[in-house]
């Protein structure tokens, strides 16, 4: 990630960085190294196999110690559109939710499991000004509540609307999102709780590169059943969770307008001007000052203007 290193070192050259390095140079130096981890894990979600049983939700709730839901996991009324006419979404009490999409021309609805997609270059991570997010070599994007300030920029930046905030806590608010069961499972190479709970094998866990091959093979074998696209292979720079769908992805709530580049790429234009302004502006404006106040030098200044004193 040459560009990242370059940008970081340039920023470090700035006012902020110089001061920072006085405090904790070691920590600064390791910040925001968004490495690509070729051997990381992922999950392939096959919408043709999901029956909407919500076992994954129940397993997640148990594994992550989340509060008991208002209605049991067998309750199908949760699939109804919410007050804003939208499919349900993750919140501070549910890291994963299953959405239902009805198609009048088909006899059965489609279900889609939503959770953090664990981007390869996560926007939440790159937008976080206290470096609260980490992309682990195993593939999980995890969050550190001990440094989070609660600015919620990650929620703005996430193109999948995944991070949530427990607004109802005054003293211990925090971001809540799926962490790929990192602490309890992924770290040890085990699949997350939701995958293990899936009775339909709609979710398969494995190395991301292998999953892409599996997905391709499924598309090749059953061309009529699948869209010829693996959602997450390239979207927003690629995600660890990948999706296969029988219908166009836009019809099952996927954002198909996402760029293939990581979200950070759009921000780099601004970040690139920072060192320019920091280095050129002082000289430029000091020069303007000298030119603009030159006339005053000719007649000897009588009442000691402050321009005189600054020299």
């Amino acid at each position: 990630m040459g560009i990242n290193i370059q940008r970081r070192s340039l920023l470090k050259g700035g006012v902020a960085g110089t001061l920072l390095s006085l405090f904790q140079p070691a920590k600064t130096a390791s910040a925001h190294k968004i490495k690509k981890y070729p051997n990381s894990y992922g999950v392939l979600v096959d919408l043709t196999r999901c029956v909407g049983c919500r076992s994954c939700e129940a397993a997640c709730n148990l594994e992550q110690g989340l509060p008991e839901p208002h209605s049991p996991f067998s309750d199908e009324s949760v699939f109804e559109a919410d007050e804003h006419g939208r499919a349900r979404r993750t919140d501070a009490t549910a890291y994963t939710v299953v959405q239902r999409f009805n198609f009048p021309q088909q006899d059965h609805p489609l279900f889609k499991k939503v959770q953090c997609n664990h981007c390869l270059e996560p926007a939440c991570l790159t937008s976080c000004f206290v470096n609260a997010y980490t992309k682990t070599p195993e593939g999980a994007v995890i969050y550190n509540p001990d440094v989070c300030v609660g600015c919620r920029t990650c929620m703005i930046a996430c193109p999948f609307y995944i991070p949530t905030f427990n607004y109802s806590s005054g003293l211990h608010p925090r971001i809540r999102k799926c962490i790929f069961c990192y602490d309890t499972r992924l770290k040890f190479g085990k699949p997350p709780a939701c995958v293990e709970a899936c009775p339909q094998e709609a979710l398969i866990f494995g190395k991301r590169e292998k999953l892409i091959k599996i997905a391709r093979r499924r598309i090749e074998k059953n061309g009529s059943r699948y869209q010829d696209h693996i959602y997450g292979e390239h979207e927003a720079g690629g995600t660890s969770w990948l999706y296969l769908s029988p219908v166009p992805f836009s019809e099952v709530g996927f954002n198909t307008e996402l760029p293939d580049e990581p979200i950070l790429d759009g921000v780099k234009g601004f970040l690139a001007i920072v060192p320019m302004v920091l280095t050129i502006w002082p000289a430029l404006f000091a020069g303007f000052h000298l030119l603009a106040t030159r006339k005053e030098l000719k007649p000897p200044a009588t009442n000691g203007t402050h321009e005189e004193e600054t020299r």
Partner: peptide, 23 residues
């Protein structure tokens, strides 16, 4: 801010120098 008492964290505790908000 969710944790207003941590306002100074980006200055002294934890740094995300590639973030615009850091700047």
């Amino acid at each position: 801010l969710g944790m207003p008492w941590r306002l100074a964290y980006p200055m002294f505790v934890s740094f995300g120098p590639a973030a615009v908000l850091f700047l």
